[in-house]
Amino acid sequence: MIQEAQQLRIKGIRDGLLITTSSEGSFAELCAQLRAELQQKGAFFQGSRVALQVEARPLNKAQILQLQRLFIEYNLELWAILADNAETRTIARDLDLAIRLAGSQTDLDGNVLAHLPESSGNGHAPAHQQSDAQVLMLRETLRSGRSILHDGHVVIMGDVNAGAEIIAGGDVLVWGRLRGLVHAGAMGDDTAVICALDLNPTQLRIADQIAIAPHEAGRTPYPEQASIKNGQIIAERWKSGN
């Protein structure tokens, strides 16, 4: 078991999840490992996009399709295959999968695959987010379609636009306008909080509670904090010393 855990690394990146696999072992073993991992953490990952790093392992078309189906089973979308093997990259590209991550040092065909960025954003995220809750800090605006998944706290210095989402195991702090969807305490922590300079989300979730914020027309924005009080999500104006 310990051996397997080391062969599969999962972490949140700017485009969703990056799953790094080892090129050792058979394809069937790889599928079994993925399945075990997804079974365990599937609910937390739900709906994410997955980039799969297969390193030197060659994959044929049937195997890639099989992986695609495996992820679909767990409600995940495989969008990229990162491979050292040129043939594997060609096959992946023909299946309309991406073969590089944005910002990595590769050409359009995915040649010269540089070392993968260890984390998203500005490199503040820990390599092993699975261990203990740490802070992922991004200094950028999250536009529609972006999904940030992190099992610790998340800090965004910028706006979170409608259509973007953050799913965090811990608290979420938005130093900007929050107009998208945020789920704090996604693994069940009902003491998690969500703060924003302008809290105007499409939807807020804390642990297993869901709230839809009323749109207050024409109000002047002020910092607010949302938390669960008496079994319900409520938002309160931020007061120093809160």
């Binding site: 944005a102 910002g103 536009r143 529609s144 972006r146 409608a162």
Partner: peptide
């Protein structure tokens, strides 16, 4: 506008 926002994000990601 929502779709434009999404596209702008992708364009930024592609540098």
């Amino acid at each position: 506008v929502r779709d434009a926002d999404r596209i702008i994000g992708l364009i930024e990601a592609e540098e």
